[in-house]
Computed example of a mutant assay.
Amino acid sequence: MLLREGRPTGLDHAVDALVDAALRRLVHRSGPRARPIAEAAARTAIGGKRFRPRLVLESYLAFGGERPPPDAVAAVAAGFELLHTAFVIHDDVIDRDVVRRGRPNVAGSFCERAASAGAGAAAATRFGEAAAILAGDILLYEATRVIAGARVPAATMDGLLDLLDQAVLTSAAGELADVEHATLPEAPSPDAVLAAARDKTAVYSFSAPLQAGALLAGGGEPALEPLAAAGESLGLAFQLVDDLIGAFGTVEQAGRAPGGDLREGRQTVLIALARRGDRWTDVAAALAAAGDGDRGLATVQDALAASGARAEVERLVDRTLAQAQERWSRHPLPEAVEAMLARLAHGIRGRMP
């Protein structure tokens, strides 16, 4: 299963091995002054689902690629995980998060380091955020270096680098739009929030890895369009489920304290839909008290459910997944590819809290 449930498979172990090898090389190449930041960057990748490199490998195999995949395929797959890790580190800075998966993230760990050396709170925070930005920059470069170093035909490499360019640019635009929605006084429309959610996640997490696997297997140009379109819908559905997890998920699902999105006042699709409804006054009052412990969180969760916004997002997930299937079904794709995409859609739906 592509979203890694249950006992690890041989492919899981292969993905872990190739990503770990890339991270070890990064740390090994760093000198003593750079090693702390390289190690902090590498630690961010520990414990992740790593489904982006798995998508590269699954797509490559579904398009008839050889088993086991050659080193070039492994390198490209690892590059997508390094790209994701870079985005995670930068995203934590933007959101001013200092904890990830229950432990200090890059910004948090360097903030603690500065504080223990006697820095004041503001200076320690600034140092931690600077370290995190630089760690993310290191991984962005490393992702590009790993992919560009894959031994593939020149035309294939051109296609891979185009995918990487598009993934970085689209994700940056989506992230900036997300910050804009949280910054400007005018509340964003549901459509605007949906567009930002799609841009932040869909291309680099779904469309690009799926297309990269097809390119590496010689799938050809006709396969790229349906994979891009289906990946866009799958990625949006994934982000919508993430929004539900951020509001209603357990600590195991969210990787942090439950209800983090509600406590932080994030402008998610869930909130945008609630604002449009006739129960917004009740939801807004509950959101104002969301930080008041477990009781405050339960109150806003109940208000969102009563407003119909939760159910509306769940229906939107189902419609978006159906749209993904319609998009990939328009084009003649190998049966194994359609089966892979169907498993992916099923896995996204199964994450619903």
Rank of each mutant, 00 (worst) to 15 (best):
E58F: 07
G48Y: 02
R67D: 15
P69A: 13
G48D: 08
A42E: 03
I46Q: 13
G48L: 04
F51R: 11
A42G: 00
P53D: 14
L57T: 07
R54P: 11
G65N: 11
G65T: 12
A45T: 09
A40M: 01
Y60F: 12
G65R: 14
A41S: 01
L57V: 07
R50I: 05
A41P: 01
K49R: 14
E58I: 03
F51A: 10
S59W: 05
G48S: 13
A45Q: 08
P53V: 00
E58W: 09
F63G: 05
G65L: 09
R50A: 07
L61K: 06
P53A: 11
R67P: 15
V56D: 05
L55H: 12
R54Y: 11
A45V: 04
R54F: 05
K49D: 07
A40T: 00
R67G: 09
A62N: 12
T44I: 10
E66A: 15
L57S: 10
G48C: 09
I46Y: 11
A41V: 00
G48F: 00
L55Q: 04
G47C: 06
E66R: 15
P68L: 13
G64A: 14
G47L: 03
S59P: 04
F51M: 14
L61M: 15
L57F: 04
A45S: 12
R52P: 11
A41E: 00
I46V: 10
A42Y: 00
A42S: 01
I46C: 09
E66K: 15
F63C: 08
R67F: 13
T44A: 10
V56S: 06
A40Y: 00
A40P: 00
A42L: 00
P69Q: 12
I46P: 01
F63V: 02
Y60R: 14
P68D: 15
T44H: 08
A41I: 01
A42K: 00
